[in-house]
């Protein structure tokens, strides 16, 4: 069972970014399944590791695009990326120190991130990139 179902309205129409966003949805769904199956801390920790990797790659791609086309919302978007990275880094540190992580907290954090950042903040560049002819 999926927590999020990818829908065409989530598309920014920049192919590589959409692929990466879909990867995040995949991670969220993986986490959701792990929570519902009460898979325990080890699985949650594995998912946090993939989140770290995801954040590094995706934010770099997105920021490169924004800089290349001189996107006016670059500053705001980057700031949110930094906040996300900081939170994920903190989770990663917790996982490494073998500290307890409440999986529902991570799930809620990702859900809110998806709903706010991807569906609201990122959508703002959709028309901008379209006007620049980016695909």
């Amino acid at each position: 069972m999926n927590f999020f179902q990818w829908s065409p309205e989530y598309n920014t129409n920049v192919e590589i970014i959409d692929k990466q966003h879909q990867r995040l949805v995949e991670i969220i769904n993986e986490l959701y399944t792990a929570v519902m199956e009460i898979r325990g801390q080890e699985v949650i920790k594995g998912i946090i590791k993939s989140l770290v990797e995801y954040a590094v790659i995706h934010f770099r791609t997105e920021e490169e695009y924004m800089l290349k086309y001189d996107y006016p919302g670059y500053g705001e978007n980057k700031k949110e990326h930094e906040n996300f990275s900081a939170r994920v880094a903190a989770l990663h540190a917790q996982a490494k120190n073998d500290e307890f992580i409440l999986s529902i907290d991570v799930l809620n954090f990702l859900k809110n991130w998806f709903q706010h950042h991807i569906l609201e903040v990122d959508m703002q560049y959709k028309s901008f990139f379209k006007s620049k002819g980016v695909k």
Partner: peptide, 17 residues
């Protein structure tokens, strides 16, 4: 409710540890 139950369960197990 399921998510909340898992939350309780995780906390209970952590408390045991």
């Amino acid at each position: 409710t399921q998510l909340e139950a898992v939350m309780y369960f995780e906390k209970i197990d952590n408390e045991r540890k």
